[in-house]
Design a protein around this nucleic acid. Structure first.
Length: 364
DNA sequence: AGCATTTGACCTCG
DNA sequence: CGAGGTCAAATGCT
């Protein structure tokens, strides 16, 4: 398969297109009375976009590693378990009860946590945090003090069957309802195949989430509309993503670093973004995550992929990541790429869907 | 019937 | 004690 090539080309094109679009936006902003802040943000994004494009080119010239995706998204999950064990996450109290808790830290922040800030602006209002490639099941919702919108709590659909303890929180931003803050906690140890390629969903399709007050829901059944939109979205989506690898108390970058689920998923899916954008109807959005209520309606792969391909802003909570990203733009020897390969074998569940490698070896 | 979501209650932590 | 996080029964959907 030439997915790798396609993927890089797609990514490159996306970045360039994005840069152009952002430049256009900036021009529009120049004429308007928009704030200096928004203009500054656009400039940042443009620069970021072109840096990524250059980076891709560099990588192409140096072997074209599929891990460019990691560079693009530039996010790493950092395991911060105090004992270095990813299993020390205590988000599951029931699980805790089975263990001798006498010595286990009671802190919540012992599990790998990272934050995505996803901003989607679509002229047609089809928006929301996109699918991240995993199946999530909502298990709670909570009104947060000082927040306009409630916070939703999701856990992996395969929590019970595969003991996957990954969770995520979705909260809509107060200021900008188009921004969704996604807090991922824990790592997926489940084997979810649907996020790797468009293939029939082995699991039952979820019911469409109801229109709750948290997230804007859209009707799923706009296939024609979606086909039309998808192309627009490819160009119009603006996804700002900020990732904070919180809990980075251990800044030594222990070898547990992997990437958030959506990055892994995107790795392959992204290749479809531009390819599929012109041919959306040829495949169904069947491999979308079914359970993330906030994302279901936004489930067409090109949407997700293009939006993920249009990631602009990456900030580490302690600016370290920013430096890393920065370094990436000027060196092919990125620490992030290293991290991609430095996944602790212990971390690798036998069922771990190691798409990245599959992807690169997918030529059979 | 089986699975997902909703939602109030309960638990933990600061 | 309050806020945030999780549980679990009720409910809804397919």
């Amino acid at each position: 398969m030439e997915n790798s090539l396609n993927w890089e080309q797609s990514t490159l094109i996306n970045e360039l297109i994005q840069g152009m679009e952002l430049a256009k936006q900036l021009r529009a902003h120049m004429n308007s009375t928009s704030s200096a802040g928004s203009r500054e943000m656009l400039i940042q994004r443009i620069l970021s976009s072109y840096e990524k494009a250059l980076l891709i080119l560099k990588w192409n010239g140096s072997g074209g590693q599929p891990q460019v995706s990691a560079l693009i998204t530039g996010v790493l999950e950092s395991s911060v378990s105090g004992d270095g064990s990813p299993w020390s996450e205590d988000c599951d109290r029931g699980f805790k009860d089975q263990q001798d808790q006498s010595d286990v830290s009671k802190k919540r922040k012992v599990l790998p946590t990272w934050t995505d800030q996803v901003r989607i602006c679509s002229e047609n209002g089809l928006e929301g945090p996109m699918d991240d490639g995993y199946s999530w099941r909502k298990y709670g919702q909570k009104d947060i003090l000082g927040a306009k919108y409630p916070r939703s709590y999701y856990r992996c659909t395969y929590r019970s069957t595969q003991n996957c303890r990954a969770t995520k929180q979705v909260q809509r931003s107060d200021d900008d309802p188009t921004i969704f803050e996604l807090v991922y906690r824990g790592r997926h140890t489940c084997n979810q195949i649907h996020h790797t390629a468009p293939q029939p969903q082995p699991q039952p399709q979820p019911q469409p989430p109801s229109l709750d007050k948290q997230e804007p829901k859209q009707n799923h059944h706009h296939n024609n509309h979606q086909q039309q939109q998808s192309q627009n979205m490819l160009f119009n989506f603006r996804t700002s993503l900020r990732v904070n690898t919180e809990d980075l108390d251990n800044q030594e970058m222990n070898p547990h670093c992997t990437f958030p689920s959506w990055m892994r998923g995107e790795n392959q899916n992204f290749a479809f973004s531009t390819l599929a954008a012109n041919n959306l109807g040829s495949y169904s959005p069947s491999f979308v995550s079914p359970a993330t209520s906030g994302t279901n309606y936004f489930s067409t792969p090109p949407c997700r992929m293009s939006s993920f391909g249009l990631i602009h802003n990456l900030q580490h909570s302690e600016s370290d990541l920013t430096e890393i990203i920065s370094a990436n733009t000027s060196a092919t020897n990125s620490p992030i790429v290293d991290l991609d390969f430095s996944i602790d074998p212990v971390e690798l569940d036998p069922n771990f869907p190691f798409d990245t490698l599959d992807f690169s070896n997918n030529s059979t």
